[in-house]
């Protein structure tokens, strides 16, 4: 596989992770526009938060797709977002400052700023993982044929499918067979 094709596959595989970041950005920007904020302001807010979260989301998907972290497990997601989430908020803060005052600037007490967001990131990690799985379970089977990363991830979930199959089989047995 050429490098471009590989990148294309990774990008396609990352769609669910990127959508979670996009959702955060769209909510922020969309509501800003909805309540009558200037269009530019709404876009800046949406992008300031959405873009870093989308990029970090893609980073998470790449790590998962390449097998560096297991699919859907909480601890690696928590470790990843404890770094990525505060940095995303830092970018958002700098962009907001830029839009409001005209010059970009760091928030007061940047370390405290980052530490607080690092704690809140636990919550974001749960929500991210949750939504990532909800969207992914529709998206990955859809691109399975042409995407090696999606195939690998679906395979990781396959023993779950096997277990579900066993559950169904057990139900069938339960209805037909009687223990003497």
């Amino acid at each position: 596989m050429t490098q471009t094709a590989d990148l294309k596959q990774l990008a396609e595989f990352s769609v669910p992770a990127v959508s979670v970041g996009a959702a955060a950005g769209v909510i922020a920007g969309g509501l800003a526009a909805f309540v009558g904020q200037p269009f530019g302001w709404a876009v800046a807010t949406g992008l300031g938060l959405g873009v870093p979260l989308m990029l970090f989301g893609a980073g998470y998907a790449v790590l998962m797709g390449t097998g560096k972290i297991p699919a859907g497990v909480f601890a690696p997601a928590a470790v990843y977002w404890v770094i990525a989430f505060p940095l995303s908020l830092l970018v958002h803060s700098v962009v907001t400052e830029w839009v409001v005052t005209g010059t970009p600037g760091l928030p007061p007490e940047p370390w405290k700023f980052l530490a607080f967001r690092a704690l809140v990131s636990m919550g974001f990690a749960i929500g991210f993982l949750w939504m990532h799985e909800q969207i992914g379970r529709h998206w990955w089977p859809h691109i399975l044929e042409r995407n090696i990363y999606a195939r690998r991830t679906v395979e990781q979930y396959s023993h779950l499918a096997a277990a579900l199959e066993a559950r169904k089989a057990a139900t069938g047995r339960g209805r037909k067979k009687r223990v003497a």
Partner: peptide, 27 residues
């Protein structure tokens, strides 16, 4: 599925809002 998605959205959104307006001392 629906509630899963809505709660995911709620959790992501609540974390983002709390991260924007809250501070270390409150937490």
């Amino acid at each position: 599925k629906l509630l899963g998605l809505l709660i995911g959205l709620l959790v992501v959104g609540t974390s983002v809002i709390a991260a924007i307006v809250g501070n270390w001392d409150d937490l």
